[in-house]
Write a protein that binds this DNA or RNA. Sequence first.
DNA 1: AAAAGCCCCTGGATGC
DNA 2: TGCATCCAGGGGCTTT
Length: 271
Amino acid sequence: MPELPEVEVTRLSFADRIAGARISSAVLGKALRWPLGLPVQQLSGRTVRGVRRRGKYLLLDLDEGLLLLHLGMSGSLSFGRQLPPRGVHDHFELVTTHGTLRLHDPRRFGAVVFVPDEASSQARKLLGRLGMEPLSDDFDVAAFHAGLKARRAAIKQVLLAGDVVVGVGNIYASEALFLAGIRPTLSAARLSRPRAAKLHAAIRDVLARAVEKGGSTLRDFSNAQGENGYFQLDAMVYGREGQPCRVCGTPIKAIRQGQRSTFYCPACQKN
DNA sequence: AAAAGCCCCTGGATGC
DNA sequence: TGCATCCAGGGGCTTT
């Protein structure tokens, strides 16, 4: 579910409220992707200083160490003083003086990992290969184009891989490529500088607009206050196979790339 | 080094 | 109604 916009919207929906909270207890449900990394009761007594985001990871800064949180495919957070009773898919909970933070994740591809600091080997293993942050200043056209030139794989799959630029998942990769007029199957290395610049702008544009709309709620995403996103209504190609292109009317095509579906307009994205 | 495939897991939609 | 199959906002790991 969650790409950069959904993760950022989630962060914005509880970061201020949880900042300064003291953890009174923590609960683990069924196993997530990786072990927590310390006995869960050792989180008690620590204070949550704030919440940052790196790619699709949320970083909960504690007074000692930090929690790396990933929502996987089906994860969502909720934060509040009066949450409903814990359900079978609620696999992690932090009870704090400001409210309870709860991870709901039916498929359990998500993760909560404690690391002592960002330089630790575990943190570097998860965060170390991440590419540029698309909404920050370090995402510049020259570096982006250089990153693409080194890759012969299809541009869609290079975007998804996250080692050139982070946060672009299956929805927003298709959307950005549509906005830039680029065929998803084109080899990344074959993008000219002007087209790389166009894609760079398209990625920033689509991600920023998606954050403004609260992300995309395809099936069940909601932010930590339980609010849905509405960007799916603005999608130009994602999930629109066979429907007319919103620009030229040509039926949208769907293909498979690396066992993920890709959507594009064969007329607007000629190569 | 880079690319391609394979999994992890659950639930909803679709087809017979 | 019941059961099989396919598909889903991700990404680390293993194999080519």
